[in-house]
Design a protein around this nucleic acid. Structure first.
Lengths: 107, 107
DNA sequence: ATTTCTCATAACCACCGAGTTATGAATGTG
DNA sequence: CACATTCATAACTCGGTGGTTATGAGAAAT
């Protein structure tokens, strides 16, 4: 019973995988061959990484002829953003209070 | 040469470690003993996890007598927020454009 | 039909990492 | 001083994971 944030964090914990995702985010769609050329590892390794990214929902694949095009699904990052938000809320609130205090002291 | 995002993602990839960090974020400071009572693992395991969180900057320790108090350093999440922001910028921009369009259509 | 190209899967290996128990260091308590 | 408590470190085990090579499946080209 792996939670969604768990899948996301685990998928993005590997630097090679993060690099693949970053490239797809910034440069858009790419084939496995193109991605393999960029990464410094073998094609099967890249395919496995893409499989893990796909399982985490971070990536979509589209088959066209004999090649597979992968693209980033940035929306999948939403739970990550939510999580960091929840972890930050409290000290942010405290920080806001401090700001308010300083603002009031300024008057 | 592990980058900062790498340290953060790796530190938060483990569910036990994330649970420890979450508890420290929500409930504030706690001793190793208290954290060990909550987690379902041995005290040395908890200490090791806290060490990794500390190395990632996510946690601070304060020695008081013979016990060590740990507290969350939520600011350390900043690089994570930045990273997700960079990965999101493009489709967010597109989303903003869409919002603008809808807003203009509404008038 | 045969060959070539692109990708995915299988099988295997080496290492890392999360857990354990044992022990030591430091601080409080009798 | 002797003992107990709290935490960190050491040494070890074991499963998961990232890499490899080998191979197969499917689509295009000749």
């Amino acid at each position: 019973m792996a939670s969604i944030p768990d899948l996301l964090f685990k998928a993005l914990a590997d630097p090679t995988r993060r690099a693949l995702f970053e490239r797809l985010c910034l440069d858009g769609e790419a084939t496995v061959g193109a991605l393999t050329a960029g990464a410094g590892i073998s094609q099967p390794a890249v395919s496995k990484h893409l499989g893990i990214l796909k399982q985490a929902g971070l990536v979509r694949d589209r088959h066209e002829g004999r090649q597979t095009h992968y693209s980033a699904q940035q929306r999948a990052l939403a739970p990550l953003v939510d999580w960091t938000g929840r972890m930050n809320r409290f000290w942010e609130a405290r920080f806001d209070d401090l700001e308010d205090l300083l603002k009031r002291m300024d008057q």
